[in-house]
Design a protein around this nucleic acid. Sequence first.
RNA 1: GGAGAAAUGGCAGAGCGGUUGAUUGCACCGGUCUUGAAAACCGGCAUACCGAGAGGUAUCGGGGGUUCGAAUCCCUCUUUCUCCGCCA
Length: 423
Amino acid sequence: MLEITRIRASKEAIAEGLQKRGVDYSEQLDETIRLDEAWRAVKGKREKIKAESNKLSKSIGQFFKEGKTDEAEAAKERTKTLKAEEQELKEHEQELEEQLQNALYEIPNVPQDIVPAGTSEEENEVVEEHGARREYTFDPQPHWELAKAGATIDFELGVKVTGAGFPFYKGKGAKLQRGLINFFLDEANKRGYEEFIPPLVVNEDSGIGTGQLPDKEGQMYHVTEDDLYLIPTSEVPLTNIYRDTIIEKKDFSEKMTSYTPCFRREAGSYGKDVRGLNRLHQFDKVELVRVEHPDRSEKALEEMVDHVKGLLEKLGLEYRVLRLCGGDLGFTAAITYDFEVFSAAQEKWLEVSSVSLFETFQANRLKLRFRDEDKKTRLCHTLNGSALALPRIVAALMENHQNEDGTISIPEALQTYVGFDLI
RNA sequence: GGAGAAAUGGCAGAGCGGUUGAUUGCACCGGUCUUGAAAACCGGCAUACCGAGAGGUAUCGGGGGUUCGAAUCCCUCUUUCUCCGCCA
């Protein structure tokens, strides 16, 4: 959520920045300004009346103490009219406040200057490419064929027990998952991220805090009985640790990591790119979350990008880094770098990580602040990134490291983690 | 799941209808004293919003109500503790 003070101060610049998302928000911005002004006017009026009646109430107490019953009764009468007036204004005020809040919820974050304009993924900017395309002397198999042949992942069994998008990993397939998780967590630990095991279900406040609610309600599994949501990413519980907090530390830099399963309904995305591990309802992910001083958030973003690059290199995968264009940028992000690995058999790029800086957009909703040098509270910057999401990494590892006989070589960095070098 | 008790500022802990945003202690910050430190003493010390400012408004777990007036009374929800039951 953008700060209303910021919209007030630089509406034009914000409207211009938002153009990069391919949608014109000027009308909505005007609407927030209008609502904000109306709201403040009504609020001011109401508070004045309230102040007067507060004063009267105090005097009533005084009158009673002094035994001036007549004066007290007279004052009582006067407060009655004030109260009625105040009540009316209060209703109007609350209405305006709610409208303003809703209007603000609908405006996405402003893309940073270097974010390219664009409306589709075609316009994402490839900023880096690493690793060589492997030449095959045989027809590389897609990972779902390899999984079947090697009995490492069982999709049909998942359908039987739960439904599509909930595979079973078996034997070496399961061990590979576990190995990757440990590898990713260790790498995060090395870079100073504290490890967490968070709850996998969160309440409504947390969903609102990180921006999943109220808009993207359909994306999460909702446990209606208890009004809780299955997390679509551990960004939600990790970032919400800092909801309603003021960081008092001077040179803070909060770095957290956690492995969790992630649950996504993926409503409306059936049919395309859903084969095998490409799009699941439940998948594993190691996530990085950071809370930073605004002056240090750019550097933090660079560090995270660097971290993810290191992981992909250690896994021996060909990858590229994209700077998402405005239209492809998430609602809450100011800038996002996507990492894609090349899938040999599918002949396409698979997104395996997304690293984003939210600036104050999440912090504003979270009420996550720090104490500035002049003792004032200011909003922090938040960041997060996957390091990494497992299924597509597994798909890429299987496809890119497959051998002609259907076996799969495990990259060296991973061998000590999984306990074997060939599947 | 049943029965009781409780929820107040960073912490501890008063207040139980009327100048209470809230006594007090600890912690913390500044000062005096001291060669320095400790002790002692003095002062400061919640957050948000509105306002150029003076100041105003709101907040004593959340929401609602009674009242001219609520931290204080009532309803409701949540959480914590104790006891019982059930269970990994």
